[in-house]
Design a protein around this nucleic acid. Structure first.
Lengths: 207, 207
DNA sequence: TGGGCGGGTGAGCAAGCGCTTAGCGACCCG
DNA sequence: CGGGTCGCTAAGCGCTTGCTCACCCGCCCA
């Protein structure tokens, strides 16, 4: 297994049996590289070291694989942001923590992130609807923190909704451009982005 | 032709003959809705009101259609940002103008923008290389303005390269989420984003 | 010992894909 | 009037796709 596969795998430890986990990891990598529609079931099975037919023992369809990936990924995002929203501390601290965690995750797991954030259009209609619901909840988590900051007089933003969208947009897009071979580590990008976001909301920062 | 087709069409006025233009417009809409790989040549031809074979009179392959769209779109982006970089005025003015124009374009032509920004992975290797070159130039334009601002003492940024990436990322992602049926007009999003970006670079703004 | 069962394979089917080819009508020019 | 050209179509070719099916192997417990 390549180093890339190892990092992709870390996020899927609890998928069993082993063959099913190998298939998710293979699917994440293939979907991230080529996109859902350009990926063949033969490619996924091949990466997992199995014959094409073996895929259908563990998953009903190719779309179900995408759905599992998308669902788990969105739930993790939501858990991360929800936690940041609900901890004690100033709005600035909570916003910085949320952005740091969210960005770090999208950098570290940029293959998974790419699939989660950019391939949801390939989901079946009912799955798509469910995922959109999760996305609205993650949006709400960020909006709540920003609104809290405004209410407390900590933040000064031109428009809460638009700023929320911009913050999320900024974080999500990390999955698209992040390159593990580049100069920046996930931690560094997280710190940089947390700083940029605090500037965006007009929060006073330590010098 | 729908209202959507009309706005998509505005960007392709100079493609001739008429049938070729109808094909690009149809391709932009189809690629934006479903993605390149999920779009069939039959779908494109159908939207343009022609038989599947007619497509190949005007374009050698389906990929060539994507290449034309991608090339023209990137050239327009580059022209826009290059102009903003080269006009007179403070760095803050130039950065705000660049962001405003770039965001406005990605909102107004969000279908084209979606294809230009998110489908380049489907390009043939040599076309991909060419487009990546154009993208580096657009990145350079933004970086130059930010570096100018830092040199002039107008801006205070944690890191020029990372901030450049973040600014571009923010603007590009507008094409993904912008919804013309939503509450915000392209002008409003442009103004909001220009403000947010000035905050990010620590530029003093009029109150 | 043996039979069921979970996990796997090789071969292949029906459908849909990108693209080609033979031919057709409208038009322009000598 | 006649022939070449341009834009287009109907039909279909060769191939790949997602997915299925008949069969197989190793393991566990009666």
């Amino acid at each position: 297994m390549s180093a890339e596969a190892a990092t992709t795998g870390e996020a899927w430890e609890d998928v069993t049996p082993d063959a099913a986990r190998r298939l998710v990891i293979a699917a994440v990598q293939a979907f991230a590289e080529r996109g859902y529609h350009a990926t063949t079931t033969r490619d996924i099975a091949g990466r997992a070291g199995m014959s094409p037919a073996a895929l259908y023992i563990h998953y009903k369809t190719k779309e179900e694989l995408l759905y599992q990936i998308s669902r788990v990924g969105h739930q993790r995002s939501l858990a991360m942001l929800g936690e940041a929203r609900d901890t004690a501390g100033s709005a600035a601290d909570r916003l910085a923590a949320a952005v740091r965690a969210f960005v770090r995750w999208h950098a570290e797991h940029h293959t998974t992130g790419r699939v989660v954030q950019y391939e949801l259009g390939a989901l079946a209609p009912d799955h798509y609807t469910e995922i959109v619901g999760l996305r609205r909840q993650t949006e709400d988590a960020i909006r709540t923190i920003i609104a809290d900051g405004v209410a407390a007089g900590e933040f000064d933003v031109p428009e809460v909704n638009g700023t929320t969208l911009a913050v999320l947009s900024l974080c999500i897009d990390v999955a698209r451009w992040f390159n593990p071979a580049g100069r920046r580590t996930p931690d560094e990008v997280g710190a940089l982005y947390a700083d940029l976001v605090l500037r965006m909301v007009g929060a006073p920062r330590e010098p």
